[in-house]
Nucleic acid binder design. Sequence first.
DNA 1: CCATGATCATGG
DNA 2: CCATGATCATGG
Length: 231
Amino acid sequence: MNDLPQVATAAPSDIAQLMARAHALAGMPLGWLASHAGWITPANLSRHKGWSGQLIELYLGASAGSKPQQDFPELGVELKTIPVTPEGKPLETTFVCVTPLTGLNGVRWEDSNVRNKLRQVLWIPIDGRREVAPADRMIGTPFLWRPNAIEDQLLRQDWEEITEMIILGQVQAITARHGQVLQLRPKAANSKVLTEAIGPDGARIQTLPRGYYLKTNFTAALLQQALQRSS
DNA sequence: CCATGATCATGG
DNA sequence: CCATGATCATGG
């Protein structure tokens, strides 16, 4: 049996230790973990959207902060919580990273931020149903994922198509409908925020910052594979 | 019903 | 503003 989860006092020394910590969280409600850590559980997440992810970081020993790197750089692992139904269907897309909109000439998929972030992901499913209070939302079975050749190719295709449009000054023509498994969407405090990009005539323009997100059809397949492996 | 576009909190 | 952590809210 697993020991009760504990707030981590140091980063995990290896992947086995990281996975042991993650497995200890399975079956625990967020409210228990929060109170055990001395945190207050919000009544809803509308003004605390990153709360669950930050609580899990605390228990796994991820270095908190806003560093533009993986959560466990020494292990090469990125941490992602994902809100799911009891059947294991994702309730939201998964944010990957923001993207620069200039200076992309010559950047290859192999060197992209998206690929770096997704090389190895520790997924933590959490009940994400809005009708369930955050305190009662149960954590699911974690799994470690590395893209296989097919998944890598799907991600690469979308990234290359979207990146090409950005380079050609078409960023304002990109919608969330582009891409099979990866999409580009706004990533900002509000729709007034501006960042530098390339316009249709090649000149610099100001536009809304964008980030890459995994579509739910893609993460749904990952979750189903993990369920089948564990049954 | 659900995906797209919009938004919230925090630290630097 | 930018990067981290994401979910909200409404139009289609």
